[in-house]
Design a protein around this nucleic acid. Sequence first.
RNA 1: GGCGACGUAGCCAAGUGGUAAGGCAAGGGUCUGCAAAACCCUCAUUCGUCGGUUCGAUCCCGACCGUCGCCUCCA
Length: 466
Amino acid sequence: MSDLRLFNTLTRKQELFTPLEPGHARMYCCGPTVYNVVHIGNLRTFLWADLLRRFLEWKGMKVTMVMNVTDIEDKIIRDAAKAGVDIFTFTKPFTEIFFENLDTLRIRRADRYPKATDHIPEMIDLVKTLEARGHTYEADGSTYFRISTLPGYGKLSQVELAPESSLSRVENDEYEKEDARDFVLWKAKKEGEPSWKTELGDGRPGWHIECSAMAMKYLGETFDIHTGAVDLIFPHHENEVAQSEGATGKPFVRFWIHGEHLVVEDAKMSKSAGNFFTLPDLIKQGSSALEIRYALLAVPHRTKLNFTKHSLEDAKSALARIDSFAIRLDEIAAGSDARPAARGAEIAQKFLLEFEEGLDDDLNTAAALGALFTMIREANTAADKGEIAPADARDLRAALERADLVLDIVKRDTVVLDADIEAKIEARNSARQRRDFKESDRLRDELLAMGIVLEDTAQGVRWRRK
RNA sequence: GGCGACGUAGCCAAGUGGUAAGGCAAGGGUCUGCAAAACCCUCAUUCGUCGGUUCGAUCCCGACCGUCGCCUCCA
């Protein structure tokens, strides 16, 4: 039974989330336009969408998640032409990089990634339905949506639409619209641009129609969740609503979830400002994928995230704390002490409760992480007092694992020590035993240079990779 | 001009009508041959400013100051 509450842009309120079909949530996420490599801001949006999916599953729901890949669009056409290749050749590498980035950041794959160009017939059908219901008009071979035919237009963005005159900035020279607020469903063919021969004439789809067509094809005319970043609320999502509800007469999406933007060092990310970051860039600069994941996850999705060098350093230290805790638990768990679980089980239970309560509150990852660190401190204190038996350690470890099904930030270090490294550690131990500290320090430095950090604890030497 | 968001310690960031989670950094300590690492402790009488409502406000209302976003392609 879920008591997850999500902020719904449609009502501007937090609402209790329950799926239309009990136990099965359906979500559509606005995905990348593959005219370039995805940047860190795009990835933030995809990351919290995945977090939402994981959390729904964590609560026992089945989730069907669909994310579009937009592979036909003005910038793609422009840049492909510039590169002298067709749009398919042009978008292919960017699509591949997108998927690689998801894997690197531990963003789980959606169930489907439909491409716009694979769904032209569905879009045509949708436009024809809109035509039959009187929502469209044609001008110069293009088909437009006439917003005055849909009384509820504007309900998502809650933008009191300004009179036509104030929208003089809208460029109207290319396509002939009756009203500047109307938007194009199907664009008439232009010389040198890719086009499809259809019942609507030769041309290509407008920007918004793909999402309506593909979302309804895979998730139904009404589905549970639609995600994206705040900049898509208007006009993209508003127009999706118009197209879909204009065609079906039914509510399109029950929960519209929008995430805030990421800024870099307090500035909007842009190529011209030189602060446009991609995942491979950041990794090249020495950050690990997990550090980046943590930095993106630590700030709840509806809060603007200031992505900085400093935030990555913070993430690194915070993760080290979590990893050390996991190692400590594993060591205790391996012990032979047969006491029954006591303090540990209690701490673990309290943690899982607080963790879930945090995420239930509109995916408050900051609160959930706060609960995690509180558990770590409490368990460490108890362990220092010898109150953590192996059974306790196993309970705590299980709780950490359980939370990590959603967070996925714990290091999975399965690397086995090379014989060489092992030999050096052994040699250092014997040097220390014969109090040859010069030799032992030399070996320690050598290992450090190899990326192996030694920790001399009361239980002996522990090592980990830097 | 229209719509909206935000302003909490050095930095990041939760939060509640009853007196401020957590992380990083910093300082102190434990441990150690020395270190490092690890662990523990400390660290905002105060939540942009000024008023109002209230027994009581950081949280509610109003004004102001400041930052930012959308209204045009955009995650």
